[in-house]
């Protein structure tokens, strides 16, 4: 890539930041060039962010409707999935799936809830009663 070709597409996900890209000058020698983003990369990033946001919206609605436990809401909020949350809490994925239900969550001990508090960086009170901002 030539340095004039380094994209400057002002990607939304960069939030005004710039990244360093290596590109060549006329002689084919490299130098670092700052880039405000590439539209292609931005599309892929936004697709991933959109998927996570959709999941969050879905879980938010389900939580408000009383269909799922607070963990189901917090999991996408903190950008976790079942596997990463399992690694972060030490629970098995099947255990977490159960904890996502209102019924099982209600029976969880404080000790188990604290593991989620640590992963989400929340207090017990915050874990049990999420403040949902729209």
């Amino acid at each position: 890539m030539k340095k004039e070709q380094v994209p400057q597409d002002s990607c939304k996900s960069y939030s005004g930041h710039k990244k360093l890209i290596y590109a060549v000058d006329e002689q084919g020698h490299y130098q670092g060039v700052k880039s405000s983003g590439w539209e292609v990369e931005g599309f892929a990033t936004e697709m991933a962010v959109q998927a996570m946001d959709n999941e969050l919206e879905k879980m938010k609605a389900a939580f408000i409707a009383g269909e799922v436990s607070p963990i189901a809401y917090y999991m996408p909020l903190f950008r976790f999935d079942l596997m990463s949350l399992a690694h972060a809490t030490g629970f098995f994925q099947w255990q977490i799936k159960r904890h996502l239900t209102v019924k099982v969550f209600a029976t969880l001990s404080d000790k188990k809830r604290t593991k989620y508090c640590d992963a989400f960086n929340l207090t017990l009170a915050e874990l049990q009663n999420p403040v949902i901002n729209s």
């Binding site: 890539m1 990244k19 290596y22 060549v24 490299y30 590439w38 990369e41």
Partner: peptide, 27 residues
């Protein structure tokens, strides 16, 4: 999109580090 993200976004100077490697060869 996941491939593209891993290649372009996640901690790279673009093109899955190929430009950085070429820059190393140049230097």
């Amino acid at each position: 999109a996941n491939i593209v993200r891993m290649q372009e976004e996640i901690g790279t100077g673009g093109a899955g580090f190929r430009f950085m490697f070429a820059s190393f060869l140049d230097e």
